[in-house]
Simulated scan of single mutants.
Amino acid sequence: MDDKENTFLKNRIRELSSACWQRDIPTYTDFLALDEQAVFRAEQGKLPPVKFLLAGGYPEAERKIACFLPSYAEENDPSWVPIVSLDARPADSRFTEELTHRDYLGALMNLGIERSCVGDLVLEDKVCHLFCLERIADYITREFTRVRHTEIVCARSPEGRTFRPKTERVSGSLASVRLDALVALAFRLSRTKAALWIDGGKAFVDGTCVTSASFSPKPGAVIAVRGLGKFRFAGTGGESKKGRIFADIDRFC
């Protein structure tokens, strides 16, 4: 994000929070990427004292919107979040290509939809679970009919469905519980290479950018590294005879 985009986002966040505070109405940003969420967190102390929440449609979401809530809203009430969950799948599973995240996202963008209106897309068993702003949900279900050469159908997810992305358990031993060691374990890197990603501002712990390789995440923290992927630090379980710490992580598939 360049300086111009940074300034625009800061002004937009201040404008929306002020409108909520002065008029006592709910206001929302579009979906924010991790670096944009970092800007939001940096601005929090400068905003009016309104209630807010960050939401992406499911607990582990990477892209989230900031919701500023009126005084009469219950704190952290998800019913105020204008996000809709959609399921897109091939019309006939017998005649379908191997479609990727990039294929689905590219097809959505070809409909003229801005990236900030769409949150995470998660592929599972030939179904693309996607999260979008409520105002464009009907347009997507109506117009999203093809990905590459494959005809698809898109509809709102079943009422009451809870979505949990698939994870893969990865275990190993660490000299110490540091961010660079966990990133190295998750993505099969050397600690030196992992540190380069962290130093470059690519690592986010629970949505906050962390540039210190020695930072110690707490068990349960969700760590995302832009360009590599995302995982949850599941915790530790004892030490080896040489004093190394056994650690478990759940890497999102």
Rank of each mutant, 00 (worst) to 15 (best):
M1K: 04
E5A: 15
L9G: 13
I13K: 14
I13E: 08
R14G: 12
R14A: 15
Q22D: 12
D24P: 02
I25P: 01
P26K: 15
T27G: 08
Y28W: 09
T29E: 14
L32M: 15
A38F: 00
F40E: 10
R41K: 13
A42C: 02
G45R: 09
P48K: 10
P49N: 07
F52M: 14
G57L: 08
P59D: 14
E60L: 05
L69G: 10
S71R: 14
Y72R: 10
S85R: 13
R89F: 09
R89C: 02
S93L: 12
S93D: 09
F95M: 12
T96D: 04
T96Y: 01
E98C: 14
E98T: 15
E98Q: 15
L99V: 09
L99Y: 03
R102W: 04
L105K: 00
A107I: 04
N110L: 02
E114G: 12
E114Q: 12
G119Q: 05
E124M: 12
V127E: 04
C128M: 03
H129R: 05
L130V: 02
E134P: 00
I136L: 03
T141R: 08
E143Q: 13
T150W: 01
V153C: 09
S157K: 11
R161V: 12
P165E: 05
T167W: 01
E168T: 13
S171L: 06
G172H: 05
G172E: 03
L174H: 05
R178A: 15
D180G: 07
A184K: 01
R188H: 13
S190N: 03
S190L: 03
A195G: 15
K202T: 13
V205E: 07
D206Y: 00
V210P: 04
T211L: 03
P217K: 01
P217W: 03
A221Y: 00
R226C: 03
G227L: 00
G227S: 00
G229I: 07
G235Y: 01
G238Q: 11
E239F: 12
K241R: 15
K242D: 05
G243T: 07
G243A: 02
G243Q: 04
R244W: 11
I249F: 05
D250Y: 14
R251M: 07
C253T: 13
